[in-house]
Simulated assay, not measured.
Amino acid sequence: MANIFVSGGTGFIGSYLVKRLVAQHHVVHVLSRQAHAADMPQLRWFKGDITSCEAVKRAMEGCEFAYHLAGYARAWHRDRQYYFQVNAEGTRNIMQAAIEAHVKRVCLVSTAGILPPAENGLPVQETMPLRPELHTTYERSKWMGEQIARSYQDQIELVIAYPTKVYGPGPVDESNSATLMMRDYLLGKWHVIPGNGKGTMDYVFVEDVAQGIQLVMNRGRAGEAYLLGGEPASYDRFFDLLRKLSQVHHPLFHLPVPVIYSITGIEWLKAKLGYRPLLTPEWVRKIPYDWIKSSEKARRELGYHARSLEEGMRYTIDWLRSTCV
């Protein structure tokens, strides 16, 4: 049993990780912007967020290990510097507090989105050269956060996890966009397949990611990063599988990328009036690419495994029908 700090412990992935740690009888310190009742002796809540050095230090005191999952992951913010304030400088606060608290090891949860798209159908590995021109502001800020974390490697052990496209039961919002598409399709509100339908993502079930993050912490080599993916699928296959498993057959049509770009123009006008846009150009330009990733390193070194897309999607459909549909 250990004392373990978790930032982002109330988020989509973080909540699953916290449940695992508590079930394993660890004492978990969770930093949260909201107040929570202390309903479990093993779960200790600390009010604050990662932009506050003092809040981070207070929550991390007495901990042996630290998981850093907190971040701003939405597609838009009226102040672009906010991404860097949270995802980059917030990571600096985590690392400095961990060193001061004599934490043994930090696991930084970044994103596979900073890695390049696949070429010639070959899955991307952790060491592939980046394509910064394809990065969103979110991904640029996450990359910067990783560089900040790595600058402390001579003072503390660091391991890094790169989850791919995470889906499953949880908040149905931008952080869980694959599940959001599934929900809206089941409700008859989603009728679009992005682009020509051939663009590919690597979909991974949220429980498998939480397990993988813990494996990275426990078994990962210091200084190494590990991709945590599941199964690649084109947009066409994703929706074909959704139709098959749900037995729901709403009409769907391909929406060309140039048309989607034109929609973002309208969305940006809305943003200037203070409304949150549904789409941004920097996310749209990622649609045509193949974002196939290889989790071979995590499988080989950590014993990581993930369920099939069909199994995870079936579970998610059942959950959506019991809660949201």
Rank of each mutant, 00 (worst) to 15 (best):
I4D: 08
I4G: 09
F5H: 07
V6D: 02
V6N: 02
F12M: 07
G14V: 11
V18Y: 03
L21D: 00
L21C: 03
V28H: 12
V28Q: 11
V30L: 11
V30S: 12
A35C: 11
H36V: 11
H36N: 12
D39I: 14
L43Q: 01
G48W: 09
G48E: 04
G48F: 09
T51E: 10
E54H: 13
E54Y: 11
M60L: 09
G62D: 07
H68T: 03
L69Q: 15
G71R: 08
A75T: 13
R78Q: 14
R80Y: 10
R80F: 11
Y82N: 04
Y83I: 01
Y83R: 00
F84L: 01
N87E: 04
M95A: 05
A97P: 05
E100R: 15
A101S: 15
H102R: 12
V103Q: 01
V103F: 03
L108Y: 15
L108Q: 08
L108C: 01
A112Q: 03
A112D: 04
G113Y: 00
P116L: 02
P117N: 12
A118M: 07
N120F: 12
G121R: 07
L122E: 10
P123I: 03
V124H: 04
V124D: 03
Q125H: 09
E126S: 12
M128N: 05
H135S: 03
S141Q: 04
S141K: 02
G145F: 09
Q147W: 02
I148N: 03
S151K: 08
D154H: 13
V159Q: 04
I160D: 00
Y162N: 06
T164Y: 05
Y167C: 03
G170T: 14
A178I: 10
R183D: 08
D184A: 09
Y185F: 14
L187E: 06
L187R: 15
G188A: 07
G188S: 04
P194A: 04
G197T: 11
V206K: 02
E207F: 04
A210W: 12
I213W: 07
Q214M: 14
L215C: 01
G223M: 06
A225R: 15
A225V: 05
A233Q: 10
D236I: 14
D236A: 08
R237D: 14
F238C: 01
R243S: 12
K244L: 14
F253Q: 05
V257N: 02
V257L: 02
Y261W: 08
T264P: 06
G265S: 07
W268G: 11
K270R: 14
L279N: 01
T280S: 06
P281D: 13
V284T: 09
Y289N: 10
W291S: 00
S295Q: 01
E296Y: 12
A298S: 15
R300H: 13
E301Y: 14
E301N: 14
L302E: 02
Y304I: 00
H305G: 01
E310L: 08
G312I: 08
M313K: 02
M313V: 01
R314F: 05
R314T: 00
R321E: 13
R321S: 11
R321D: 07
T323V: 06
